[in-house]
């Protein structure tokens, strides 16, 4: 019950912040609010037993991406132009997609159901073997580095490619002062 109340409180804060982000014209405010949104979602992850994800979201989602956005804002206009937003077509698309998603979500097993299909396939094996065979108590680490090590390698390649892309985009520009920026983004 307490978990549900905490959940409702955090989620309502996230909805309010998302709406504020949508309506503010000052981009700095929007960026800082996005950082807050990420941090609250990290609190949600703790509430949902995903402590490793919460760590990463707080450090990477709320930290690094906010810093990147703020660094980029140093060279971009700080205000969004007035009266240019489209309303009707995007609203229609969002409403249709939202209704379809709600219909789909209603067919899912109830929230927190231990007999749900998701929990029956490989997860029990990971939970048992991690301790007995690999002697690593943190199962998320085991899956990340052992069972799905190639996924993590792929992730590293994606991050490297993105870093390379950022570097190339910013170092071939007209302005020579871009070079330093590229280095920073690559890390």
């Amino acid at each position: 019950m307490t978990a549900l109340l905490v959940d409702v409180f955090l989620v309502s804060m996230m909805v309010v912040i998302a709406i504020l982000v949508l309506y503010t014209r000052r981009l700095f405010a929007a960026i800082v609010l996005t950082g807050a949104y990420s941090l609250i979602s990290a609190a949600m992850f703790v509430n949902l037993d995903a402590v490793d994800v919460a760590f990463t979201e707080a450090a990477v989602g709320a930290g690094i991406s906010t810093v990147l956005l703020l660094a980029a804002m140093a060279r971009l206009p700080a205000e969004e132009k007035k009266g240019t937003s489209l309303i009707i077509a995007p609203l229609a698309v969002c409403l249709i997609a939202g209704v379809l998603l709600i219909v789909a979500v209603m067919a899912l097993p109830p929230f927190g159901d231990p007999t749900s299909v998701v929990h029956q396939h490989v997860a029990p094996r990971y939970l048992i073997e991690s301790d007995v065979k690999l002697h690593i108590p943190n199962v998320v680490t085991t899956v990340l580095a052992s069972y799905r090590g190639f996924d993590t390698l792929g992730e590293t390649i994606v991050v490297f490619a993105a870093g390379l892309g950022v570097f190339l985009l910013l170092s071939t520009g007209r302005r020579k002062k871009n070079d330093g920026k590229g280095d920073k983004d690559e890390k």
């Binding site: 994800v53 199962v139 998320v140 990340l144 992730e155 991050v159 983004d185």
Partner: peptide, 23 residues
């Protein structure tokens, strides 16, 4: 633990795409 691992990967990739988009 499996969705946790998938999302760990997704968070990092998400920041990489944000950086590329900003560039």
């Amino acid at each position: 633990p499996l969705p946790h691992v998938l999302i760990l990967t997704a968070i990092v990739v998400g920041v990489a795409t944000t950086a590329l988009g900003l560039a």
